[in-house]
Write a protein that binds this DNA or RNA. Structure first.
Lengths: 189, 189
DNA sequence: AAATAGTATTGACATAAGTCAACGTTTTTA
DNA sequence: TAAAAACGTTGACTTATGTCAATACTATTT
């Protein structure tokens, strides 16, 4: 039970089995079909998820109705609508499964209880934030002043699973280019 | 001495004067002229800065020699080449004063010592990361699929000081548009 | 398994934004 | 404070990428 989470925690330096059990017990397994909305636009995020299996994305819909993908997460990673989770304001974004998923869910209350009471867990949270920050920064950098071809090449180099696992349409909306342009670029690689 | 830092710490919930003094004593004041490089491209960031006066930016130079600005920070804020500071890898970016500055500098060693020993300071670090993450996210969002006019409008709304205080050229390189385009847009607002 | 809806590809065309250059203005440096 | 360098603005032109539409392909759903 909670195999992947257990090895994640071990890899982050939690070696005490009792603490691992304590942490794992805060999570409940949810099996969820593809395209389920986990956080709605106006909702306030009240849970953190660990992805046991499947894939999740975060996206918005702009005024013209076009989707814009912000983030994709796969097995072995945590995911949440973090700005809303942190500030408890409406998400102003959607979080959605994009494959059949097994998710380990922890309530915000329990999450912060763990942060308060388990120092190693607080460290993991800090690491998640640091990593999230670095990835976001790299993405801003990676995309700044790049043309469509360079963005695709950047993605191949830095997040190769995206092009293999995510639909063209979603990848295009992540890169801020049209599906047509992505298709044309891919045919020339 | 260290007025602005003191009130920053108070605003973040540190009320014990002894702790404020302890924290403040880890910082040394540096007066630095404009356009000084604080972190070089290949350097490893070993300090965190609190801006007492002035402005700092983080930027890179791409393969064609064009600058790309990532971040601007002003009085009352912390700034560092965070990815390098965290991972202790070469920065792959520059940190530079863009005005005459008074900076309060703390070494990485002392910074993490404070994080370890002063719980309220650890909380401040978490807040900095959370905020940095949220801002980076918002920026990705804010710019995703926006045309040049919309990016400028977004900046006016979300970071109005940029257009007032930073040169056209740097703002343009922050927005990922050419200075000509920014100039044309400004003349039509 | 058939029907339906969604997705990918490609061509023709439109357009936003880049480049380059010239000029005037502001800022820096000596 | 004069000279030099950097910056901002604007016009003419070029180009990358978007839009729209037709067709083919792939997944979902019943």
């Amino acid at each position: 039970m909670h195999h992947l989470l257990t090895s994640f925690l071990r890899s982050k330096g939690i070696h005490d089995d009792k603490i691992i059990e304590l942490v794992c017990n805060c999570f409940t397994l949810k099996e969820i079909k593809s395209k389920s909305i986990l956080v709605d636009y106006t909702a306030i995020a009240d849970a953190y998820y660990f992805i046991n299996k499947g894939a999740v994305r975060i996206f918005t819909i702009n005024s013209e109705g076009a989707e814009s993908s912000r983030y994709f997460a796969f097995e072995g990673n945590f995911v949440a609508a973090l700005p809303s989770f942190i500030d408890q304001k409406p998400a102003e974004e959607y979080m959605q499964t994009i494959e059949k998923c097994e998710l380990l869910k922890i309530s915000r209350t329990n999450f912060y209880k763990l942060v308060e009471t388990v120092p190693t867990f607080a460290k993991i949270y800090t690491e998640i934030l640091e990593l999230g920050f670095i990835i976001a920064q790299k993405r801003i950098y990676g995309f700044q002043g790049f043309d469509a071809l360079e963005k695709v090449q950047w993605t191949i180099k830095n997040q190769p699973q995206l092009l293999l696992r995510i639909s063209n349409k979603m990848v295009a909306s992540y890169l801020g280019i049209s599906p047509s342009t992505l298709s044309r670029i891919k045919s020339k690689l």
